[in-house]
Write a protein that binds this DNA or RNA. Structure first.
Ligand SMILES: [Mn+2]
Ligand SMILES: [Mn+2]
Ligand SMILES: [Zn+2]
Ligand SMILES: [Zn+2]
Lengths: 136, 136
DNA sequence: AGCGATAGTGCAACCCGATTGCAAAGGTTA
DNA sequence: TAACCTTTGCAATCGGGTTGCACTATCGCT
């Protein structure tokens, strides 16, 4: 069973035509993708179908979304075993020059001592600056 | 000299009618405000004027913006001495129940060891969950 | 296989926060 | 005062995101 089939099975998502091409596309990318990126990258699928696919994927923790401040939500495939719990979260890096957004997969976010009685459920942690390519 | 005059002077912003009411309004708030929040809170100033005022304030580090994932950028007045450098940044908390966004002023963000040659300039760190009021 | 129920897709329209063009109003300077 | 620059208000526009709806594919059952 290949990676894509496996993900659909583990995350309990029915594999459909659009879902398969979107997931395959996302798995090929090195940077997080916006809805527009995916639409352009696939060039035949409908935007609203991709949109609903992304919602489904996010609900089932196939992907996670990143608010990088660019105005477009970005999406990236979750790593194996990720359940999108606080301990699964990682930093993201947004390069203000090339406008790429990366998952810093080996940079888990630290536990933050919140004020009394505050309860953390998720987090969106984005570091902005210059990536290695742009920082010459 | 009161706080408002002082801020305009220190941050080198010319105090104009709209700027004065916007800054005064922001200083009164306990939670970060969206453009819409400010427009409603002031109820006579024009949205685009407020918008441009916020841009001016942000450029001059009078306020900082927060992308909390709600779809509306939020703004909060910087504390005295803040220069919006990495060491001045703090976590934010977005309550998914009451939809309020707070500055966690006494929670500075930690230094992150970025991959080789990456350079951090800014950050947008938002923790999401339930605030003390909503976490009953 | 046949049939009704359910889920997914494509298209077009809409929503709404953000942004801009432009002319009027205000302020500054010589 | 006259020329100039800045700020403001209004209306229009942009663009990402979202939704209604009809059509199609798939599923569950007989
Ligand atoms: Mn990620
Ligand atoms: Mn803040
Ligand atoms: Zn870059
Ligand atoms: Zn709350």
């Amino acid at each position: 069973m290949d990676r894509i089939e496996e993900i659909f099975k583990i995350k309990d998502v029915k594999p459909t035509a659009v879902r398969i091409v979107v997931l395959r596309y996302l798995l090929e990318q090195k940077k997080a993708q916006s809805l527009k990126d995916i639409e352009v990258g696939l060039d035949q699928s409908d935007r609203s179908s991709i949109f609903r696919t992304l919602k489904t994927f996010e609900d089932h923790k196939v992907i996670h979304s990143i608010e990088d401040g660019s105005g477009m939500t970005k999406y990236a495939v979750c790593v194996e075993g990720c359940n999108c719990d606080p301990e699964d979260l990682h930093y993201h890096f947004y390069c203000t020059s090339c406008e790429m957004t990366f998952c810093l997969l080996d940079h888990p976010i630290p536990l933050v001592n919140l004020p009394n009685n505050f309860k953390m459920a998720q987090a969106n942690m984005v570091i902005k600056g210059l990536c290695d390519k742009c920082n010459q």
